[in-house]
């Protein structure tokens, strides 16, 4: 994780930054951030967590999705300072000790990844779904990921992977 942020940098305007204490991927971070900094900028630029992707910056694609207190948000639309005291999960925090989360494994096994730009956001959205509803129907998966655009896959294998990770899908082909 990139450190070295939050020191007093010489600036020609008054320092408007606020202290933000937030848990990111299980680790507590405490940094000074500008009040207008988005959660996406905070994650990518201040913490070096580039797994959250930016594709529109206006809430139109879902590539920047991360979980805040377990719920998917478009991090490009959320202010970092609004995450005070909250728990943020990014794609980098999903695998534990090098062991992939079942969703990550299912995305690999089912060929749900092509260019991969939508993948982190898609997996996190799916995680929130499965945490609440471990055996979603095809329709429920479609509704849950309707805010995440994928340009490559036609969603077919993504839906398959999510349902398989939830235990309701068919096994991966071999």
């Amino acid at each position: 994780m990139g450190g070295g942020v939050g020191g007093g940098v010489g600036q020609d305007v008054a320092d408007t930054r606020k202290r933000l204490t937030v848990t990111v991927n299980g680790r507590q971070c405490s940094l000074m951030v500008e009040p207008n900094r988005t959660l996406l900028e905070f994650l990518r630029e201040d913490l070096g967590l580039t797994g959250a992707r930016e594709a529109c910056d206006t809430g139109g694609c879902g590539a920047c999705t991360v979980l805040v207190d377990g719920r998917p948000v478009y991090s490009c639309l959320v202010l970092a300072v609004d995450c005070q005291g909250k728990d943020v999960l990014t794609i980098e925090g999903l695998a534990v000790d090098g062991r992939l989360h079942p969703l990550q494994q299912a995305f690999i096994d089912h060929g749900a990844v092509q260019c991969g730009f939508c993948t982190p956001g898609m997996i996190l959205t799916a995680k929130a779904l499965l945490d609440e509803n471990p055996a979603p129907t095809d329709e429920e998966v479609r509704e849950a990921i309707a805010g995440n655009i994928c340009r490559c896959t036609g969603y077919v294998k993504i839906i398959e992977a999510i349902r398989a990770a939830g235990g309701t899908g068919k096994p991966a082909c071999t």
Partner: peptide, 22 residues
């Protein structure tokens, strides 16, 4: 002829893949 997982899939599902944007 075999449906093997992509060679870059691991990097992509863990968020490590590096794009020009990064």
């Amino acid at each position: 002829g075999t449906s093997l997982p992509r060679v870059d899939a691991w990097d992509k599902v863990t968020g490590r893949a590096e794009y020009a944007f990064d």
